[in-house]
Design a protein around this nucleic acid. Structure first.
Length: 399
RNA sequence: GGGGAGUUGCCCGAGUGGCCAAUGGGAACAGACUGUAAAUCUGUCGGCGAACGCCUUCGGAGGUUCGAAUCCUCCACUCCCCA
């Protein structure tokens, strides 16, 4: 593959490469490049948003380059201020460990383990002395740090900026020095941090890394960047039905964006599909996504499930089992609202009653309208309880 | 170090002694319509209770009062101006 062809593959789905000439130069050398990606261990799921960058990283691997994942176990204690209007809460060590464990498995749904290197930045950041930190700080100026949007905005709006937050970009930049990366990948919100890496590398006499930025995926709410804290995400380990359903709930305006960032469907084809029938296009998108993280067969099943359950409003035939707690049964009778609450399908008994009143609760496809309904426990056994649009449980009476 | 302003429910924000579980907006959730889209309309939106009601909440701890988100004291945190 010529350098030009490689560039074409790598360019797809990026918004900016700083600089493309440098990248071409590095590719020309023919040696395997070290492509760095910072991993945020404050979350427990690889979301489709994050997958955008991971998929780009996999493109590099296809060309024989090495993915260098840096688990930000140290920086998690600071909290990346990128795009945040508030200081982030700092995580405990245990939480970080748990997240890393969960996430590292999910990452290999996309990446090739043979070409992946995993490092932890606590290994070098955690052992620095205060003198080391001061030396690092001396390589950068306050004015340059404050150029950053998040800081400028917060400053102008009189919102707090804690001292440790301005160290974040330096930490991340120093990571690049430590792994001597050739390329750093990131979302567009990482531009500032990644550029700091270039500066620092030069201070340490290294060739500056190329910075490649990928667009941010908008979440299922159609408004904000997909993120776990906002709950507008799809995880790569979501069940096929969930993945499919969540995709179907995105606004039409996002279709173009999602096809480009989440699938391998050629854009000309995708745009044609969206133009002719957005609904059909969205189902195609959902199938593509499920196919990517599960299988084509499961995608078809999810498609079928969706059609029957939501489009045709047929009775759900299969759902997760839920045992009816014994202590809710009095004289063989159970109050429906209490049952819904104790199964976690509503926040409280009151909320459950509100849902019933609103007509959101049904048993075997039959709406229950009485908020105080008391039902024979024996008769509930095996029935499918539906709360809201997408919560189902097969009730089981334990003997 | 000196002076000033502020901290209210998921978020923004009103409330300055009883009519405050606390106006309004946003978000969220549910229903109707539909394509689990958009737009629109409706309802819910601290907890318990069938209900009169009860309990917990307005940065934290005390106090004044029959009664406090509202007044006083101390503490913590944030922002602004000056140095």
């Amino acid at each position: 593959m010529t350098v030009e062809e490689q560039l074409a593959l790598l360019r797809r789905g990026t918004t900016e490469i700083i600089s493309e000439a440098d990248l071409a130069e590095k590719l020309k050398s023919g040696k395997p490049l070290r492509v760095k990606l910072g991993v945020d261990p404050t979350v427990a799921h690889v979301t489709l948003g994050w997958a955008v960058v991971l998929r780009k990283l996999r493109d590099f691997q296809k060309l024989g380059h090495t993915a260098v994942l840096i688990i930000g176990d140290f920086t998690a204690q600071i909290g990346d201020p990128s795009g945040k209007s508030k200081t982030r809460p700092q995580l405990s060590h245990d939480e970080v460990v748990r997240n890393v464990e969960a996430v590292s498995k999910q990452v290999y749904k996309i990446l090739d383990p043979a070409l992946t290197e995993i490092t932890y930045n606590a290994d070098w950041l955690g052992t620095m002395t205060f003198v080391d930190v001061i030396k690092l700080c001396s390589k950068y100026t306050v004015a340059r740090i404050m150029e950053r949007d998040d800081f400028t905005n917060r400053w102008n709006e009189h919102r707090p900026i804690a001292m440790h937050e301005i160290l974040y970009p330096l930490c991340q930049g120093y990571d690049s020095v430590m792994v001597n990366s050739d390329v750093e990948l990131g979302g567009t919100d990482q531009k500032f941090n990644n550029l700091v890496g270039r500066d620092l590398m030069q201070h340490w006499g290294q060739e500056p890394q190329v910075v490649m930025l990928c667009p941010l995926l908008i979440g299922t709410d159609g408004k904000e960047k997909m993120s776990q804290s906002l709950g507008n995400y799809i995880s790569v380990v979501d069940s096929p039905n969930d993945m499919y359903g969540k995709t179907m709930s995105i606004p039409d305006e996002l279709l173009d964006n999602w096809f480009e960032l989440c699938t391998d469907v050629p854009m000309a084809e995708a745009r044609q599909a969206i133009m002719s029938n957005p609904y059909e296009a969205k189902k195609r998108l959902a199938r593509e996504i499920v196919g990517l993280y599960h299988s084509v067969e499961e995608a078809e099943m999810a498609d079928q499930f969706f059609k029957e359950t939501f489009s045709q409003r047929q009775q759900v035939v299969e759902a997760e089992d839920a045992a009816i707690p014994h202590d809710l049964i009095a004289d063989g009778v159970v109050a429906l609202a209490n049952l819904i609450a104790s199964l976690g399908l509503a926040k409280s008994n009151g909320a459950a009653r509100d849902l019933i009143k609103a007509g959101a609760v049904s048993l075997d496809a039959e709406k229950v309208m009485d908020p105080f309904a008391k039902l024979q426990a024996i008769e509930l056994d095996g029935k499918i309880l539906r709360v809201g649009r997408h919560q189902f449980r097969t009730l089981r009476l334990a003997r």
